[in-house]
Design a protein around this nucleic acid. Sequence first.
DNA 1: ATCTATGCAAACATTTTGCAGGCTG
DNA 2: CAGCCTGCAAAATGTTTGCATAGAT
Lengths: 143, 143
Amino acid sequence: MLQETEFIRILRKNQHKITPQRLGLIRYVCSNPGHFTAEEAYRNLKKSEPTITLATVYNILKIFTKAGILNTFESNGSRWFETNSALHVNFICENCGSIEDYEASDITPILKKIKESGGTFVSGTILVRGYCRNCAKAIERDH
Amino acid sequence: MLQETEFIRILRKNQHKITPQRLGLIRYVCSNPGHFTAEEAYRNLKKSEPTITLATVYNILKIFTKAGILNTFESNGSRWFETNSALHVNFICENCGSIEDYEASDITPILKKIKESGGTFVSGTILVRGYCRNCAKAIERDH
DNA sequence: ATCTATGCAAACATTTTGCAGGCTG
DNA sequence: CAGCCTGCAAAATGTTTGCATAGAT
């Protein structure tokens, strides 16, 4: 996987050591390109790194986020992570909690305004709430 | 204040009683049109309603949000509220924590895509992180 | 009079912290 | 082998819950 070596490169550049736990998380995010919480990553990492603790996962996730490997946002009482790609819409279903990505190519004008007023962009998240197709259908049926 | 009677109307329509605590929160949000947490609202409401508790504030905030009076999002470990206006950008400074609004007139195409795929829109939040003008300047000075 | 809302305290969930020992570079 | 990282336990933070009483309609 190309991304794996790229992520290692980024970590090394930022003077971070490549521990088995960190490598495990890199592999997890490379093979699970969706959204996940610390808890989910923890459960998954335990398979390859049985001694790992949640605190370590939080620690690693914070480092990865600062390094720009991950993007993070808060929703439904916990923090979510995703591989950091272009600014896009996270559509969160109010019923089943699923998170779905939508492209948002038309966002750049917003960032321009912020820069014009002297601000510096670091990261962005667009959260849209509603009911996903499946839940919208199910709710309609209940009427 | 025009909004005050409008908010009361909305609550009544949804079968919610107008208690002094709720009226206090309505007045707070009408006269403080920025962003606030439950804790901040609590501190403010205590002035006029000294017996109020945080739990009640949370309760009221949830009701107001469901009724569409408030919009809510999570950031920096806690939940934020704002009077629900058009979908806009919340620019959050990573350094000082300030939240600033930016217009986002060009968002509608995104919602269109969600509707086209069968989803139902409820609410949306755009969070952009970076450094506000003041902090960006200060950080630059430190070099 | 009815039924909902408040106030209180305790529970809960998530994230952070401090430190001793272990491992990477 | 120096310094950063992990694992552990405990603490801190923010939010929710259950229940008895008070209050709005």
